[in-house]
Design a binder for these strands. Structure first.
Lengths: 154, 154
DNA sequence: AATGAAATTAAGTAGCT
DNA sequence: AGCTACTTAATTTCATT
């Protein structure tokens, strides 16, 4: 019912880079009719292979010019402590991604703020609490999205 | 010429979550006519406020089930060394993001592989070279996208 | 079962007030 | 900006393999 064939893979790979392509463009690229392509795309959305389609907003316009990686150490406690924190951080506008990780840190956040001062405020409000044992900030000078080609499966 | 007003901000915020909304839906949400909304969206694309629109593919389907953060230390050398490495990594299918950062590490990569063994291979091929002084791998147990609401600007 | 071609419906675009 | 007409794309139907 939810098998993915090579046409589907091709479509996913195209839409991953540009979700605004028309049925005709997709048809051209994969070698099927426009109708068949769009039928497949719809199915891929239904079965969750395509989770969602989003617009990438320029960080400048979004007013978030400073990006940081924050490694958080959470003090030992109830097992759901990390999940509670995760939910708390997910609700903050400045937090763009949350990684639950192994190693010295427990959570790694990517944070975007309007300025370093805004980030300083952010840390004071959110990291100086009983829930956070320690944190380390890594300033991102530049970030790049990688755009993988058809994927030479490792 | 490229001023962003509050209607534009609202549109960006809507499309950031779901880029497949129709003019009518946008109109309903922001309080303008469908045509006006789409005109604005088109302009936002032209001025680069909307960088692009992409489909988010389920990691399972993409066949990349293991996610890692890699902190790379680059030996001192020509100033363009980091940029050369950045470009090299950007071309790899397993690398999804590249951060050029301050601190102990110089580059932080997010890497996605089909398995841990695949990642082991990946490190052998790409990190055991003269260009990499050392690296540290952080295994991501779970990752979450944060979905900021209208943004309580910090 | 899924495709392609044609017909229908809906969306996006352009012109005018 | 809004409204309306025009154009293009998406969706559905249907005959075909």
């Amino acid at each position: 019912m939810d098998a993915i064939d090579s046409f589907d893979r091709k479509l996913l790979d195209l839409l991953r880079h540009d979700a605004r392509q028309t049925g005709r463009q997709l048809a051209e690229a994969v070698g099927l009719s426009p109708a068949a392509c769009l039928r497949r795309v719809q199915r891929l959305r239904e079965i969750g292979a395509i989770e969602r389609e989003v617009a990438i907003i320029s960080p400048q316009v979004a007013g978030q010019t400073v990006k940081l990686l924050v490694m958080l150490v959470i003090p030992p406690g109830k097992p759901d402590r990390i999940d509670r924190l995760r939910r708390k951080f997910a609700a903050l506008a400045q937090v763009t991604t949350i990684y639950h990780v192994t190693g010295k840190a427990d959570l790694v956040l990517t944070v975007e703020c309007a300025s370093m001062e805004a980030y300083a405020n952010f840390t004071e409000v959110h990291f100086y609490s009983e829930d956070i044992a320690s944190f380390e900030t890594i300033v991102v000078l530049r970030s790049y999205d990688a755009h993988p080609e058809p994927a030479p499966k490792a």
